[in-house]
């Protein structure tokens, strides 16, 4: 007889974009699905669900990660920043403005992941030239092919930060 039981839900506490959020999750729920389906933060995108595209990139405790390969239950107590948490009081984050200025997207689907990834990149401080930006942003696929504009936008945000 096959085991068909659904594992029990486990309570977790997160700080998402500065706001405390308590929820109960089945262990198989990823952070990505918790954000999108439970917290209605659909700005974080699901592009592959396997850590191959970077569309789901968020910042956990300031570090960029793929939320699709992160179990929500393992992030209990963490601070999560998603694309919805980057703008402050209606003012766009410099990266968001730079992405608009440089037309660093077309369809917009990879964009939240690109911007969160770029925010992580800026915090890491490891990219010093365009080649290093390209390499360190290569975990974020853009099928519209906006890469050169994405690099230009990040360079703009870098020069102003």
């Amino acid at each position: 007889m096959a085991d068909l039981t659904i594992p029990e839900r486990i309570p977790i506490n997160l700080v998402v974009n500065g706001e405390r959020r308590a929820l109960e999750v089945v262990p198989w729920t990823t952070l990505l699905d918790a954000l999108r389906d439970r917290l209605e933060l659909t700005g974080t995108k699901k592009g592959c669900d396997h850590g191959q595209c970077g569309a789901c990139t968020v910042l956990i405790d300031g570090r960029r990660v793929n939320s699709c390969l992160t179990l929500a239950v393992m992030t209990d107590g963490a601070e999560i920043t998603t694309i919805e948490g980057l703008a402050r009081d209606g003012a766009l984050h410099p990266l968001q403005q730079a992405f608009i200025d440089h037309d660093a997207f077309q369809c917009g689907y990879c964009t939240p992941g690109q911007i969160c990834s770029a925010a992580g990149l800026l915090a890491e401080g490891r990219a010093r030239d365009a080649d290093e930006i390209r390499e360190l942003m290569s975990g974020n696929l853009c099928r519209c092919g906006a890469y050169p504009n994405i690099v230009a936008a990040i360079e703009q945000a870098m020069s102003r930060s």
Partner: peptide, 16 residues
């Protein structure tokens, strides 16, 4: 001209 839907797309407000 910058995209008129740019803000929606960079803030995660654009719904798919």
């Amino acid at each position: 001209t910058s995209r008129v839907d740019g803000r929606a797309k960079v803030t995660g407000a654009a719904k798919y």
